[in-house]
């Protein structure tokens, strides 16, 4: 009897459903909980009554977050870094990948090996830090934007994409006397909007979330991106805002949760619309790379 069930399709269906439900619940619950706590009445939170849905309604913790000048500066800085850094990264990666995909390029194999090797071996934290120090880039936003400018993975994804484009596209233009740069900007680029937007998203999220190098390389508080500010508030528990009297209506916990939700919000808002681009990028990289 037991063996029959085990061998049959019923158990299969059962396990399948269990895993799906578990996956959905585990993925959604933490954020939902954080959202619920952040807008709930602090007294209910303290009693431990908030389990899934918000209890009561109170936006004081969000007001407290908005009052914190560091968070606002961090937000603005991050937006600047994301815009500048993404533009830089996408430009360098796209140009490099196109050249790399072209069989005419001299030393092509050598460049390929040179780039891929860095996926498996790196100088490590200290030598990289010293190089940046040596370049005089410490405490400048260019330090981490430049050092993260190219991701080998993204470079390979783009190269694979360009290699898949039909060669006739370029050939007709060459006959008309155009050079590689012209071909790239007026023929290849318009055909590659989808993959370029994927790259924009990959790099933008990477810079939005980057913590380690800004943390190591920036000293000036006014230059901190959001993630470094967040560390002070969420991890080190520094929820005390500038000269705000300790309010009964807010808890350090609810402020933390409000901060977390506030900083995830932009990604949460764009995510459903751009998700398919990310997946496309991974597919290209995964299948060919």
């Amino acid at each position: 009897m037991f063996k029959k069930i085990f061998n049959g399709d019923t158990l299969f269906e059962l396990i399948k459903c269990l895993i799906i439900i578990l996956t959905i619940v585990v993925s959604v619950y933490p954020l939902l909980y954080i959202f619920s706590v952040s807008i709930s009445d602090p007294i209910e939170v303290m009693k431990g009554n908030v389990v899934l849905w918000p209890k009561g309604f109170c936006l004081d913790s969000y007001k407290e977050v908005m009052k914190n000048p560091n968070i606002i500066t961090g937000y603005v800085n991050t937006v600047i870094y994301v815009v500048v850094g993404t533009a830089l990264s996408v430009a360098v990666t796209t140009l490099g990948a196109y050249a790399l995909s072209n069989k005419r390029l001299i030393f092509r194999k050598f460049f390929n090996k040179m780039f891929v090797f860095t996926m498996f071996f790196s100088g490590g934290m200290i030598p990289t830090y010293l190089v940046i120090k040596w370049c005089g880039l410490l405490n400048s936003m260019w330090s981490f934007l430049l050092m993260g400018a190219v991701s080998v993975y993204n470079l390979i994804v783009m190269r694979s994409f360009f290699e898949g484009l039909p060669k006739e596209l370029e050939e007709s233009a060459f006959i008309d006397g155009a050079n590689d740069l012209r071909v790239f900007f007026s023929i290849i680029m318009p055909c590659s909007k989808a993959i370029i937007s994927t790259m924009v998203l990959f790099y933008a999220v990477g810079i939005w979330n980057s913590f380690l190098w800004p943390f190591l390389l920036l000293d000036d508080k006014a230059k901190y991106p959001l993630q470094v500010v967040l560390r002070q508030i969420i991890i080190s528990g520094d929820t005390k805002m500038s000269n705000s009297t300790s309010d009964v209506s807010t808890l350090p916990e609810t402020i933390k949760y409000a901060t977390i939700f506030f900083s995830v919000l932009p990604i949460l808002c764009v995510y459903p619309f751009v998700q398919k681009y990310f997946v496309k990028g991974v597919m290209i990289g995964g299948v060919k790379g």
């Binding site: 790399l100 100088g123 400018a149």
Partner: peptide, 27 residues
Amino acid sequence: DSKYLLLMIAPCVLYFIIFKYWPMFGL
């Protein structure tokens, strides 16, 4: 023949030399 392509790949190569290979040398 590949002078324009080299021009296009130059920023990339420069990046890898400065931020990846120089630190390796720094080891």
